[in-house]
Design a protein around this nucleic acid. Structure first.
Lengths: 218, 218
DNA sequence: ATATGATAATCAATCGATTGATTAATTGAC
DNA sequence: GTCAATTAATCAATCGATTGATTATCATAT
């Protein structure tokens, strides 16, 4: 981020506005249901600027995917970096990651548009996002697998380890995706800090239980 | 279901064909992205028949929701019925439900269109589906919560119990929703019987571990 | 400094295509 | 003959994309 003292060159401002608006609208309604007119209106820009800056609606989607990938690798790239060598360190690192995941994906208001867009791309991947999976997601997943292996004594790349990590991720993203039935059944009107804390407690308890059980098996 | 020996009254045949086609197309591409023309073509029916039989595209969606709700309550209504009175019986019932969930939602080819439509309605609920949540989903969730409580000694309607059941559901539906990244990371080309069995093993292991841990707490 | 020309950015207007919906005419069973 | 079911044709509305004209920005020459 450059200090805002240097106002962005005229073009970059609307480009950024379009990207932010697209992330929001794509995430809210899905790619097909989102209209370029609505995005342009939200960005206070002319419709033609989408084609000018991104080549079209599909290009705008690809730019959103790249942006999401950059932000994600920025967050998790550093968060998962610290030296981890013992089983208890690995367990603590996994718990920290799960906590960060619940807060970032389920609770954080600022990250909400990003998370919503990301989860839509997960269930309906665009060609552009397939690349993000390989370059951004797979290495991150592999790193979490190594933590899991270190904490349990299992093999880092065994089928069970990889699927267990997916099951951990599942519990986090579910509360974002299935927000409607969760709110209804829990009698909540929103997922605020208190609700996120309750979810976090369950996810962490499940993580501990799964690590213990896997450790006993290995 | 009336025996097919009595050939359906002329109208009901195209009505059923439209419903099946809509379930498929809505599930594949989402409600907004699905066009009535594509649905009509898949059902070998005229576009106007959608308005004639269902009142419009939205009515077709509502009819799909009702159909899904009917099928679901038919499946789970009987599957969760058997008398359960001891903790070990409850644990066995939960494991059976998890197994049925993985097979029905993740693996079963026949149930795939239904599952895909259902999961789309979960993340983007239509007004018609809100009713399904209350009348169909919430009671089922409550019943699973009673099983959970019986198996662990926790309170059936405690926040922790209800969230734990959601976390169990999460692991099942995730492998349907996030199929693309899972296939990529696992090096699979599809989720067939073998892959479903591997997923099932992880989900069941996590269920056992969570039940044990919860039982120790309560 | 200032004028000039090139480039980048923005705009209103409009394009053909496709959307969901509707109409009027036709079919077919009883 | 009657009426529910079906069809082809058409509706207005909206979609993403593109156009040509206009404005802003900046490097360069003087």
């Amino acid at each position: 981020m450059k200090p805002s003292s240097a106002p962005l060159p005229r073009g970059d401002a609307t480009r950024a506005a379009l990207l932010a608006a697209a992330l929001q609208v794509f995430g809210d309604k899905g790619f097909e249901a989102a209209s370029t007119r609505q995005i342009a209106a939200a960005a206070r820009a002319n419709i033609a600027m989408i084609a000018y800056h991104f080549g079209g609606k599909e290009g705008l989607r690809a730019a959103c995917a790249d942006h999401v990938a950059a932000v994600l690798s920025g967050i998790f790239g550093t968060a998962a970096a610290p030296r981890v060598e013992t089983a208890s360190q690995a367990r603590a690192a996994l718990k920290a990651l799960a906590r960060a995941g619940v807060r970032g994906i389920v609770a954080d208001e600022a990250a909400r548009p990003l998370a919503r867009f990301l989860l839509r791309e997960i269930s309906d991947p665009s060609p552009a996002f397939a690349r993000v999976f390989e370059t951004g997601f797979a290495p991150l997943h592999a790193r979490v697998c190594r933590l899991w292996a270190l904490a349990t004594g299992e093999e880092p790349e065994s089928e069970a380890t990889r699927l267990s990590v997916f099951a951990l991720i599942a519990q986090i993203v579910y509360f974002r995706i299935a927000r409607a039935p969760v709110l209804l059944r829990m009698g909540w009107s929103e997922i605020g800090p208190n609700q996120a804390a309750a979810i976090e407690a369950i996810v962490l308890a499940n993580l501990e239980a799964a690590l213990d059980a896997a450790g006993r098996r290995a």
